[in-house]
Design a protein around this nucleic acid. Structure first.
Lengths: 333, 333
DNA sequence: GCTCTTTGGGTAAACGTTTACAATAGCTTT
DNA sequence: AAAGCTATTGTAAACGTTTACCCAAAGAGC
C-alpha cells in the first residue's frame, strides 16, 4: 500500500491535481501554505512517486541507460564516473545494464530492457553490437551514442580516442627514444576496426622514419593478459629478442608481457621497453610501472552523455597523451 | 509514435484484450491462429511493450536494482557476474545503480531511483548506508539484501564472508608457515564492523598459539593502495622490520605494501611475507603473485539474489579459502 | 458598481497495459 | 432437447500521474 497522491489529496482536502502540482513543483500554481501542508502530509505518509505512472503519462523519462560489456570493465569505471558526474549536473539518473560479452542474446536483452522503459537515451560503452541488434537500436526512436569504440560506419555517433593517433603516438615516442625495432602486440585485427587503425598509425610512424615492420614484430591477440603472455613467447623464440620495444594493445596485454618477460629473466626496460595503450590505474601498480598512451576515459563518459543529449552525429575524438612511467629505456644511438 | 497494442488490435481486428493476452503469453486464452496473426503484425509494427504501463497495472516488476559503491569495484565485478547469471536463470533483469562512496546524498538518490520504480528487490553491494538512508530503505516495502558487508545489527539480511574466519584463516596459515611476528594492515577499525571482526580473528589465532600482537604490528587504514604504502613505511621505520609477515586488508593494500617494499629493497617474500584479503585477479598480475584469502564474490552475488527473492533474513556466510601463490615464505624454526 | 486580471485550485481525460467478468459458439452429456 | 462444458473473444475498469481546461474569488482600474 504505497501512499499515492490520492491519499495525500484525501488527507489534505485538496484535489489530486493540486497535490500533483506541488509535488512536481509546478511553480506558480499553488500557494506556499498549500505546498507546506501537502509536503508535510507527503512526508508523514512516506509518499514515493510512482515513476511508472509519471512516465506513462508524460512519455518521457530522465533516465539514461548505459550498456556495458561485461569484460574489460577496468576502464569502464572511469567512463561511468564521467557519465555519472555529468548526469548529476543535469539531474538525470543513469542505470547500468550488462550487455554480455559479444553475446548477441545478452545484448538484445539489455537493449530491449532499455527500449521498453523508454529511456531518454542509450549509451553503449565499448559494446560491439551484432548487426541485427544494431538494426533494432536504429529502428527505435531512442537516441543512442557509442563510447570507446570505433566503427567503419562513420555515420554512427560515437566518442572515442583517435586510434590511428594512438598507434602513431606510441610508435613515434619509442622512435624518439632511439628504438628502431618496435613490436606491436595483443591487438585484434580481424573484426575490430580499432586494431586496424592502431596498426595503421604504427606503420605510419614507422614509415615516416624510414622504418618498416617485420611481420614477426606484430603479434595479434584479443587484448587480454594471455595475449600478452603469448606475444612475449613469440618474440622470445630465439635467444635474441627481435625487438627492443613493444607497444601493448591494452594494459592487460602490457602486464602479460611484463610478467612473462620477468619469468624469462628479460629485464624491463633494460632489454625490452613497453608502452601500453589505455593507461588505467593498473599501470601504476605493477613493477616497473608502465609507460602508457593514456586515454581520457573520464572525458569520454562526461562529454559522451552531453553529446547524446544534444543528439550529436558523427565521431568525436578525445585526446590521448603519453604518460611516462618506468617501462621505457632510451637507447643510445 | 511507438506502436501500442491498440494499433495491433486495430490492424488485426481483435480486441486489445486478446492482443495483450497473446503478447504476454497467457496460455490457454487464445488460439494458435490468433497468436500467429498478432505476433506477425506486432513484428511488422515494431511493437515494443511499454513497461511503465505494465508495471503500473500489475504493480510488480521483474527488475532487481543493484546498488554499488563507486569505489572498490574491482571485486564488484565478480559479484555482479553472479547476480547477472542468477537473474538470467530466473528471467529477471538487473539494473545497476551507483550509490557514490559513503556519500549520503548519492545513496539517497540511488535508493529513491530504485524505490520509485518499484523494483522487485534491492541488492546493496558493500554500500554502507547512512542511518537515515537505512531507515528510508526499511520503511519502504521493497525487499532488500546486503552483499559483502557486515553489520553489527545482525537483523539485517546479508550475505558476506565470515570476517572473523578470514582473519583467523590468514593468521593461522602464517603461523603454520612458521611466522611468529605477524602484522595486520590497512583495515579500518572505526566505523566498519568488518575491520573489527578480522582483527578479532587475527587475535584469536594468535592467542590460540600463545602469541600476542604488539600494537605497532597492526596498522589501520582505509583498504586502499595508499594505506598499504603507509603501513609499510610504518613497519620500516627501524632498520629491522618488526614483523616477518603481514596480512593486508585488501588486495590493494597488499599491492601497496609489495610495491613500497620493493622500493625500499625489502624482498618479498624473503624478508616479508604477504597474505592479502580478497583474492581478486589483481593478485595474479603483480610480482610475486600474492597469496590470498580468497573470497567467493561470485557466489555472494549468485546466492545473494536467491536469498533476496526468498526474503531470507539474517546472515549467510560464503566460504573463503586460502590461495597459495608466491608471496609467503615458510620460515624454518 | 462594473469589468478585467491575476491567483489558486478543481474536473476529468489521457497515457498503455492487464484482467475480472461476460458473452458467444460449438460441443458433449444426459 | 435441455443443460453444462470448453475454448475463444470482447467490454470495461483499474493502475497513479499530469495537464488542458474551467471556475471562483480577490484586487485593480475605471
Amino acid at each position: 500500500m504505497q501512499a499515492t497522491i490520492k491519499d495525500i489529496a484525501k488527507a489534505t482536502g485538496f484535489s489530486v491535481a493540486t497535490v500533483s502540482r506541488v509535488l512536481s513543483n509546478k511553480k506558480g500554481f499553488f500557494s506556499e501554505k498549500t505546498a507546506a501542508k501537502v509536503n508535510q502530509v507527503a512526508k508523514e505518509l512516506g509518499y514515493k512517486k510512482n515513476m511508472s505512472a509519471t512516465e506513462l503519462v508524460t512519455k518521457k523519462s530522465n533516465v539514461i541507460a548505459a550498456l556495458i560489456n561485461s569484460t574489460k570493465t577496468n576502464f569502464s569505471d572511469s567512463i561511468i564516473k564521467g557519465i555519472q558526474d555529468k548526469a548529476d549536473e543535469l539531474g538525470k539518473t543513469v542505470i547500468i545494464l550488462y550487455a554480455g560479452d559479444r553475446d548477441a542474446r545478452a545484448q538484445k536483452k539489455a537493449l530491449t530492457t532499455a527500449l521498453e522503459r523508454s529511456v531518454a537515451g542509450i549509451l553503449l560503452l565499448s559494446v560491439d553490437l551484432s548487426p541485427e541488434n544494431l538494426t533494432l537500436l536504429k529502428s527505435a526512436r531512442t537516441p543512442f551514442y557509442f563510447i570507446s569504440i570505433t566503427f567503419q560506419d562513420t555515420a554512427l555517433p560515437c566518442i572515442t580516442s583517435n586510434d590511428h593517433g594512438i598507434g602513431y603516438l606510441a610508435t613515434s615516442y619509442l622512435i624518439r627514444q632511439g628504438h628502431r625495432r618496435i613490436g606491436l602486440a595483443g591487438l585484434d585485427f580481424s573484426d575490430s576496426y580499432t586494431g586496424k587503425l592502431r596498426l595503421a598509425g604504427y606503420q605510419a610512424a614507422l614509415a615516416e622514419n624510414q622504418l618498416s615492420a617485420h611481420s614477426e614484430w606484430v603479434q595479434a591477440g584479443d587484448y587480454s593478459y594471455e595475449a600478452g603472455i603469448a606475444a612475449l613467447d613469440a618474440y622470445a623464440q630465439n635467444s635474441e629478442l627481435p625487438i627492443t620495444a613493444v607497444i601493448a594493445g591494452s594494459d592487460m596485454v602490457g602486464i602479460g608481457i611484463l610478467n612473462r618477460a620477468s619469468a624469462l629473466k628479460i629485464p624491463v626496460p633494460q632489454k625490452l621497453s613497453i608502452v601500453t595503450i589505455d593507461g588505467t590505474d593498473l599501470c601504476r601498480i605493477v613493477q616497473p610501472p608502465l609507460t602508457s598512451v593514456t586515454q581520457d576515459f573520464y572525458k569520454m563518459g562526461y562529454v559522451g552523455l552531453e553529446r547524446l543529449l544534444e543528439n550529436a552525429a558523427g565521431i568525436t575524438y578525445t585526446q590521448s597523451e603519453l604518460t611516462e612511467r618506468k617501462s621505457v629505456l632510451a637507447v643510445k644511438k
